[in-house]
Design a protein around this nucleic acid. Structure first.
Lengths: 213, 213
DNA sequence: GGGCAGGTGCTCAAGTTTGACTAGTAAGTT
DNA sequence: AACTTACTAGTCAAACTTGAGCACCTGCCC
């Protein structure tokens, strides 16, 4: 799964009603163009696709107030909300070492009730542990790990990464359990959208110095 | 950059002369179908593409010795070797948190001379450090990190991951410097290819239990 | 000697991603 | 008044990826 659907659904949902350019702006505001495939083309494609699948409802042509071609506004449907939550839950529990999906999921984690968030994160650590032992068992040849030569370093990297992630996840669980942040049904949600006409401090302009690609 | 070109070029290079199915077999042998987009379609596409671009030379139709349609054999060209090394160096130095590229790069690291490998890995840690500080500076609002709410956790995750990677990289550097593995120009290279007719212990059959996707 | 399970080697259509491009408006500027 | 610049909003072709499928052969079993 790529992160684009989760990101777009989440952005539209937070906005209530949004056109493509607004979604694009929000995602840039979250820095998503730096860590995910949130390019214009992908965003517009995802919007159209999901509208066709009934996850979004497209309000045709609000003539643009500020230049440019006429724009389409989108609203999330019930089906879309369902799909959003499904994707979010999956992204939180499954271990697939894709930074973009993980990051997106953290960004939307407060859309779930607090105790569900904790449960899902615990499940995540459990799965990582399971994956870890299956890798060590499965990929270590009987004749000892030397057989693998430098290839063993790949495994080493995976395991190291997995361990680091468990550590981080446990920290997050602790913070959530001790009351940090505001979750679904706990009043005033934290909203990370750009108000109409607000300028974006993290826009596509200058980026980090060595943003190697 | 996706990992597919690096993987395919490296596989053909190690084999000397290979057809698509052999490349596919090698990549499976390395477990690459589990951590990268090394599906048949992608492999054949990459082979054709790179042949068209002059990175590979295609020997038309050696009639298959063992069933199936006639096959095309590929050899790497000088241009292809150049490109391979360029991709490898870039993958080793650049920090882009893509597991597949990283893993592929580790798999081919011994194709470089030992001291270059060390230099590149040190450059990698330097860049991660640079990236780390630019993130902390750039994404922490003046009004203190509380402004970000739970979004700050995304940054937290990035930093934690980056730190874990630096740690692992330093470990690898130490192992290489103290003489582990056999690098380019040090005699008998470690070759991870399947001999003709050898069976693949890690083939596409059963996979890890919870290989979440 | 027919059937069929399974391996070999590749192709193809459908879907997704990319990055450059279009085209319109507003607002400053010589 | 003409000219440049910048922003808004979206499109498009080309590239890439995916997963299923095809056709062919081998060996085996009854």
């Amino acid at each position: 799964m790529s992160a684009i659907r989760l990101l777009v659904l989440g952005a539209v949902r937070q906005h209530g009603r949004a056109h493509g350019y607004q979604v694009r702006g929000d995602l840039e505001y979250w820095g998503a163009h730096e860590w995910s495939n949130a390019k214009p083309g992908s965003i517009y494609h995802a919007l159209k696709q999901m509208a066709k699948q009934g996850l979004l409802h497209a309000h045709e042509i609000a003539p643009s107030t500020a230049g440019g071609p006429p724009r389409t506004e989108y609203e999330i449907t019930d089906l879309g909300t369902e799909e959003f939550l499904r994707l979010l839950r999956e992204a939180l529990t499954s271990y697939d070492q894709k930074m973009d999906v993980k990051s997106a999921a953290i960004g939307f984690i407060v859309d779930l009730p607090r105790d569900e968030a904790v449960t899902l994160l615990k499940e995540r650590t459990r799965r990582i542990g399971e994956w870890r032992s299956s890798v060590t068992e499965h990929y270590v040849p009987e004749d000892g790990p030397e057989q693998l030569g430098h290839i063993g370093e790949i495994m080493n990297l995976w395991i190291h990464t997995a361990d680091a992630e468990v550590e981080w996840t446990l920290g997050l669980i602790a913070r959530i359990e001790s009351g940090a942040y505001t979750f679904a049904g706990e009043g005033e949600p934290f909203v990370g959208v750009l108000a109409e006409g607000d300028e974006n401090p993290y826009a596509t302009g200058e980026k980090h110095p060595e943003d190697a690609r």
